[in-house]
Computed example of a mutant assay.
Amino acid sequence: MKPARHAFFALAFAASSVAAPPDDGLRFDSPRVVDLSSRVRELDTADVPIVALAPDAEAAILAAPALAEGDPSLPFASDALHCADDARCAAQAEARLIDAEHGLVTRDGGTLRIAPPNGTPLRFVDYAIKATRSADGDGARHRFLGRIANTGLLHVAIDFAHDSPGAFLIGADNGKVAFVHNGGDVAALSPGGGRIAVLNSLNAPAAVAIADLDAQGPSLALACRARVAGSRVVADAKGWHDANGFDIVLRRTDADGKPQLLPLRLARDGGHWRVMARDTAAPAAFDDFSCRAPRQQF
């Protein structure tokens, strides 16, 4: 469930109540949206090579604190707009950010529109579904939060009535769009904001996605996961080592109930991604955890 501090958006849903979620609004599962929080993505490329990680680097990864879900680099709407639980204040703050885009972003009631000059227009439609005797109500509210620092990407936050918040990251020029479930996943921006790493440390199988971020839009750079059916391996995010390396620790419990840990660094080096482990054979033992890089950007 989403944090209580974001509950004020649920109060605004009633103003745009419809019978069902709109078919014409962009959602995280729309065909043109790449869901960076998905843990089932398959890529048709060879696995990224595994190379040696120095013992001191392994020790530093183990010692580092884990990043927590619900405390992401991407701000929630109430934090970014500085309006606490005041819906009127949030609407006014959003209007100022929309005005600053000089027609690129517009709002008409419960519909937020983005018209990239070299891409297909996007529509984000707020909705609310009333509860019935046989079904719970539902709803979603979108807020434009301006641009993500150092990237030029547009940031549209979504608050769900029954789930933690998410974020759409959008190329202002071409409308390329990715989704991050940043209220339920770790969503960590790299130093300088050039990349984002996304993972969920609470659920198996372990999976990590890394996307490159720039004004042209988000581009999937790396997708990693444990590939054994029914895997119980999970991953903790230890954060960015630098702008080119993201640290994680794989966790599993052996037959004796003892936890086993495997520190890894997912690193971009010389134009190519590498998985770094002290024992290069170890990732395969963690339910065939491996990474792949896409042939084409989305």
Rank of each mutant, 00 (worst) to 15 (best):
T151L: 07
A95G: 06
K176S: 02
G25E: 04
A187S: 10
F28N: 10
I98V: 15
K130D: 13
A15K: 10
L112E: 03
F9R: 05
L250K: 06
A285V: 01
A66C: 09
A255Y: 09
L11M: 07
I158Y: 01
V208T: 06
Q297C: 09
G109C: 08
A95R: 13
D247W: 03
D287Q: 07
G194R: 15
G270L: 08
V177K: 08
E42S: 12
D254L: 08
L220N: 01
D159A: 09
L81S: 02
P49R: 07
G270R: 08
R268I: 08
G194T: 11
R295C: 01
A157T: 01
A131F: 00
A172W: 00
A235K: 05
M276P: 01
A7Y: 08
P205D: 09
S164E: 12
I248N: 08
E94G: 05
F160W: 11
A157Y: 08
R5C: 00
V177I: 14
T45K: 02
I50T: 15
D85N: 06
F286L: 03
R123C: 08
A243G: 12
A7R: 13
R295S: 14
P22E: 05
C224D: 03
G137K: 01
V33I: 01
A206S: 09
L97H: 13
P121V: 04
S78M: 13
D71S: 12
L261W: 14
A84E: 15
H82G: 10
L43S: 01
T120D: 14
R141L: 01
D287E: 02
A4D: 11
A229I: 03
L261D: 03
F168E: 09
L154S: 11
G230Y: 02
A84L: 13
S17K: 10
Q260R: 15
Q297G: 12
G193W: 07
F76G: 08
R147E: 15
S231L: 04
